[in-house]
Write a protein that binds this DNA or RNA. Structure first.
Lengths: 236, 236
DNA sequence: GATTAGACTATGTATAGACATTATTGCAGC
DNA sequence: GCTGCAATAATGTCTATACATAGTCTAATC
């Protein structure tokens, strides 16, 4: 059993829920009942329940009590790997090939480019991530020079723009989209794909508060790449 | 500004971190300093910091102090949609076509089938999810009849096995793998794909404690399907 | 100089009480 | 029966205090 009292209380409650003894909608014992049961103070019980609330297992309603939450929409924590780290952890050597890098105005037709640019210029970077000299992923990135003026003076031929941004620019929000697509002729060529053209496309836009920072599209050959997502109701 | 004191303290600290004023590794003020600053009790400050710890923004070391966490590996919360709900929310009609359903022993060569079966039989279900009568996803599922004996008597031609399991079996852990693959001849045929064969493959295995419950492989035509993942350091 | 023992101190856990907030419940009056 | 008000009860927030625990730092020792 766990070491501290509030963790013990939490895990006892959690067991009831996960075993199905306390189904969704079930009213768990009131704080004062748990206080009596465990002979502890209300704050301790409160702490235990609060952590189950933040884990999404319990919802609380004043005056009414605390209830087992309805099963949530399936969700999972997706690890989006740092490409360089992932390659090196497999014992391969990472290298980067800068394909193009130019400063330009947003394309008028593209709504999202204008939003990202916020009245200023964009930095468009295209590069290829290589593992042991073989193509691993194709990156197309747009950076707002309004949000990140420093980027204008960085030459991204050594450090990939993603890593540089992560190290220098704090961000508050990111949205990812994951699709499967067939690589275009040119993309297949760059990624050295022959017959199998299925690729995993990961697009991400990153915000700092209301401000758009960057937008990236990463193309991974389907055969060589997995995303792993993991879900457990509570940490540990 | 927020209503309650500990939320106000939390959001002030969070601002310092997200704006970059307090970079990773920075030692934030000690609890007793914050107590003096906000003229409140230590428990209140503690609650504020504890919530930043559970959000991963701060790490604490006894005797040394509390520090801004190193930027984590990029991670995001991935919503794994209930297929039926997703289709219906787009205003399309959902239907299900049961392709096969049989009870069998695990295939000896497949390690994971033996693990899943746990000495008993498996229920193998194959079905097609349709939106407005057109193929939307192909599902191949194995259910452990040791873990879920009730499943043996369910005919999955009305309710898809995923929804049924979600409603009846509590689970504790799930692991997902996402890849892009080319559909096989037969799969392309079932999904009515012509030229573009790129598909998103989602595999999931679900556990209840140490017990394996089910394993599923979902194949989505690449063009018609997106997974969206979202990340923000703190809820709201 | 390197190692170890002990003092120090910030965090970790827990208590017992207080008052605030709010949704429910039940009662009184229409 | 319906409406509205007041009593009630459960959670939400906060305080002041206490002791435990475990890294860190210093200083004494080898």
């Amino acid at each position: 059993m766990n070491s501290t009292l509030h963790l013990r209380i939490r895990s006892n409650i959690q067991k009831q829920i996960l075993s199905g003894s306390w189904p969704p909608g079930y009213r768990i014992p009131f704080e004062h009942e748990l206080v009596a049961r465990y002979r502890c103070s209300r704050m301790t019980v409160n702490k235990a329940i609060a952590s189950l609330v933040s884990a999404g297992l319990i919802v609380r309603r004043r005056r009414a009590g605390s209830f087992v939450a309805e099963p949530r929409v399936q969700s999972a924590v997706l690890e989006i790997p740092d490409i360089r780290a992932k390659i090196e952890e497999r014992g391969q050597t990472y290298s980067l090939q800068l394909l193009s890098r130019r400063r330009r105005k947003p394309a008028g037709r593209r709504e999202y480019e204008r939003t990202l640019a916020a009245g200023g210029d964009l930095l468009a970077v295209r590069c290829l991530h290589l593992a042991n000299g073989r193509p691993y992923a194709l990156e197309e990135r747009l950076i707002s020079l309004v949000a990140v003026p420093e980027a204008a003076s960085i030459d991204f031929s050594l450090e990939p723009p993603g890593s540089w941004l992560l190290r220098h620019i704090p961000w508050t929000e990111a949205e990812h989209r994951i699709r499967a697509i067939d690589a275009s002729e040119e993309e297949a060529d760059l990624l050295e794909l022959s017959s199998h053209r299925a690729c995993l496309e990961l697009s991400r836009r990153t915000l700092r508060g209301p401000e758009h920072i960057t937008r990236v599209r990463l193309l991974f050959p389907g055969s060589g790449f997995d995303l792993v997502a993991h879900f457990a109701p509570l940490g540990k």
